[in-house]
Design a protein around this nucleic acid. Structure first.
Lengths: 231, 231
DNA sequence: TTCACTTCGGCACTGAGTGTCATTAGTATC
DNA sequence: GATACTAATGACACTCAGTGCCGAAGTGAA
């Protein structure tokens, strides 16, 4: 580990702490074997700082590994690809959203369930708003990352489609749940863009607003007829 | 050029002819310089045959270049990346869709315009149905291609959003046109999946059906109120 | 200390994609 | 036909992402 990397490591300590998953408390000591020399979050932060400074394409894995004070080979044990770096604990959040949806009373209209769950999914501590904004800017505007994100969005849509299918008693692969999931994703991404375009805006508010607007435009009454025809 | 490549070249002649853009008639003779030794379509067909035989990831650019009887470097003058291979003349089709939408009477309801334009966009000569099916199967089920497709879909959505914005007299970046474009994309992709899952089905019919179904569920009446509020 | 175990990181490799440049194969002009 | 001009080609060398392999380095327990 180079001197500069050690300095940077200290530099980032506070940020890294904030990003550790708060839900799962780590076992205090690993039973066996050599202790990990870094963390998911530390590498991620180092990398994103470089991305923001000099651009995604101008940053190599070697740069990141050097800056993080780890070997190149070690990098790939923490992240499967360069494009995975900005995603944080997406899987954890997604699981949380799935549980949130499942735990909701079905007395609520479907679109209200979705709105609330999706807004919660996108909630971020106020201390990280600035960071989150720059992170999302990368994800939405760097072509490589934009392309890669498709695969993550597929899991996200799956969660939405599953819930819609259950609520409407339709098969998961049916057109309605699938399209509804695409629409929700579209609403989110359109709201993200509006948020990124206006420094003063708040993501949560924009999302809530967007879903309320769309809600008015989607009428679920014809689903009944469709369901009996398609099953 | 190897012997086997020459044989394959003859083999593919018929297919290549079919895939040449029918709209733009080639100038009979190039004015100046060395004549191209191959075509976009020939490389694409060679590559797709390999992808279908042994898989996308198992096929290297070297394989494709060798099989097409061209140099590796030449390949990259015809295609910017391996992922661009299955896309055919997407830009041309997209332009055609843009023109189609622009040429439509605005007496038609918006969703009918979109349905017709999008269905036409997806029309393919019956002789190519089998080929088209395998091509779409690659595009939708190979992760690398799926990710890459995001960038193409962005242009496609742009065309839809532009039209919706014009029709509803909303800014292009507004939530409604953006979400509408995402929804249309979602409907298409959901219909593609249904089509691929059922050998007997017809893409055009499924798309038409899907858009008619969604149409019933989207009510544009509230747009008026939104427009005056957001402009 | 030794063992079992886990992480680390160096090395060599594959494959995508790019910059450079000499070569080749056409067309136009003399 | 010889020459000049032009455009496509393909060889070479290079960068960078990502992978397989394997020995070395830590760490807790016996």
């Amino acid at each position: 580990m180079t001197l500069s990397a050690e300095v940077k490591g200290v530099d980032l300590a506070a940020d890294v702490e904030r990003m550790e998953e708060p839900a799962v408390s780590e076992p205090e000591h690993r039973r066996l074997g050599r202790a990990p020399s870094t963390t998911h979050a530390e590498i991620s932060h180092t990398a994103l700082r470089l991305f923001m400074d000099r651009g995604f394409d101008q940053t190599t894995i070697d740069d990141i590994a050097r800056e993080a004070g780890i070997g190149r080979r070690t990098f790939f044990r923490y992240f499967a690809s360069k494009s995975d770096l900005p995603w944080g604990h997406f899987d954890v959040l997604l699981d949380r959203m799935r549980q949130h949806l499942a735990s909701m009373s079905d007395d609520l209209p479907l679109m209200e369930q979705l709105r609330e769950a999706i807004v919660e999914f996108n909630r971020v501590p106020e201390t990280e708003w600035a960071y989150h904004r720059r992170r999302m800017d990368l994800l939405l505007h760097v072509p490589t990352l934009l392309a890669h994100s498709t695969l993550r969005y597929a899991s996200w849509r799956q969660v939405v489609a599953e819930h819609v299918a259950r609520r409407l008693e339709l098969p998961e692969h049916d057109l309605i749940p699938q399209t509804m999931a695409w629409t929700c994703l579209g609403v989110c991404l359109a709201a993200y863009e509006q948020w990124l375009a206006d420094e003063e805006s708040t993501l949560i508010d924009l999302l809530d607003e967007a879903f309320r607007l769309i809600d008015e435009r989607i009428d679920t009454s014809t689903v009944q007829a469709h369901r009996s025809a398609s099953m």
